[in-house]
Design a protein around this nucleic acid. Structure first.
Lengths: 248, 248
DNA sequence: AAGGTTATTGACTGCTAGTCCATAACCCCG
DNA sequence: CGGGGTTATGGACTAGCAGTCAATAACCTT
């Protein structure tokens, strides 16, 4: 830059302070399907400008940790982090007035907990249905919406369902998880066929014990991998197929 | 947890400083198709630990601006920002050693410039082919890859092509832009049919003046909107169609 | 054994998008 | 002015994905 574009940006904005340091916090949108509905983990402020409102778990970024380490550390105060099947960065908010106490950047993460995990929560912490959020602090409601939107989008073109479903499950159980997460009806027949064809899930060979409820025992499935992978079939305008090799 | 694993964060990490302030910079991955190839805007460091290497445009975040304002301000030093047809946040990097001078967070943005815009660049600034990147500073090569990956993904399931294409264009011109951006062959016939069906582009009615090169004049198209929209058809497991209304 | 309940499978359909080829509309040249 | 070259356009054909529905299977209880 240097010569032609001097980087003392402040020159162009005389009124601005040049102090580039800001406070930075980390927030987490942790989602789980329970009781046929998608829930987000919130805790209740007990003082401060957003008194009695609910907030996303999080806290200040320390100077010797990465954002990912920070969110994992802070989440450990609220849930058993071993239950987190997936954690990814969502976005960074920087509105000047997002926190009335002053300038505060926030980097949000999306975390997912399988439906069969039950954490023991601290007294101030609860799961809330995302379709019926309480009054929330600052921009936390908006950040929660971003997280839910991200989850719903990725459920269609990735194998992210692994992070919401139990380790093994029947087609019906999977249908219930997807239906709650997506927020609309889902056909179990179609869902199972799609995920099998995409090679996201595979039958374990076992069936549910013909015990309880009457009805035919169901086949059990599991996700083939438990890390995120993109369904390449959703790349429209995909590269031309290489000519089929002779090895086959 | 919580009660079982009390954790006033600092307690568990005695060596850590609790100072939550960090330096923060903004970087931009600005992409444009020219000469049948996808290019990224870079400028050349002339001193410092990454001497002679190329860097993404950017600079420190000021305390009275949002991240979006900051990236727009800093980009103005490199290109005519009126040429930017799209700008979105990409990700925030926080590795402790990403800059050898010390802890420095970086929030990266993705910017797109239509293929027909020609900016006058400062002397230290140049467009580089993304398929042949020079030595780059710090983690800037990795951030560039993230930007290119994001662009390629969104070209398939959004109308983001509007930000790379000229205001009006023929099917061949659009094909050239997509092919360069995606990095693989694209069929003009198929591309045009897909984008028309998705209602992303529409014929203007005009045709190219039958002037220069011989050959039939081509129909001209334009994108119907110049802000990003998601192709809902890529929501697999989409909600059931409401029964057709009588109004039709 | 009959009837209720849940699961699984296959048939059928519509739509998307990939490929290929015939035809259209221009140019230049002889 | 007509033939041949060049680029553009549109139609035909195909394969595969996903949505729906109904028939069948495998359990239960009475």
């Amino acid at each position: 830059m240097s010569s032609s574009t001097p980087r003392s940006a402040a020159d162009t904005r005389p009124g601005a302070t040049t102090d580039p340091s800001t406070d930075h916090e980390v927030l987490a949108v942790v989602l789980q399907v329970t009781d046929a509905a998608l829930h987000v983990l919130l805790w209740q402020h007990d003082r401060g400008p957003a008194d009695r409102s609910w907030a996303l778990p999080g806290g200040p970024l320390m100077s010797d940790e990465t954002l990912g380490q920070s969110v994992a550390r802070q989440l450990a105060q609220k849930v058993d982090v071993r239950h987190l099947a997936h954690l990814e960065q969502l976005e960074t908010r920087s509105d000047l007035d997002r926190d009335p106490r002053g300038r505060l950047l926030a980097t949000a993460y999306l975390g997912l907990v399988p439906a069969d995990q039950r954490s023991i929560l601290p007294a101030d912490t609860r799961w809330h249905q995302v379709e019926a959020l309480p009054d929330m602090a600052f921009d936390h409601a908006s950040i929660t919406s971003s997280g839910v939107r991200r989850l719903r989008a990725k459920l269609s073109y990735t194998n992210l369902g692994f992070a919401l479903a139990p380790a093994v499950f029947t087609a019906s159980e999977l249908q219930a998880v997807y239906q709650a997460a997506l927020g609309h009806e889902v056909s179990a027949t179609n869902l199972k066929r799609i995920l099998v064809r995409r090679e996201q899930i595979a039958a374990t060979g076992a069936r549910t014990s013909p015990g309880r409820s009457g009805g035919r025992p169901a086949a059990e499935y599991r996700f083939r991998t438990r890390h995120i992978e993109v369904t390449d079939q959703f790349a429209v305008l995909r590269p031309p197929e290489p000519p089929r090799t002779l090895s086959e």
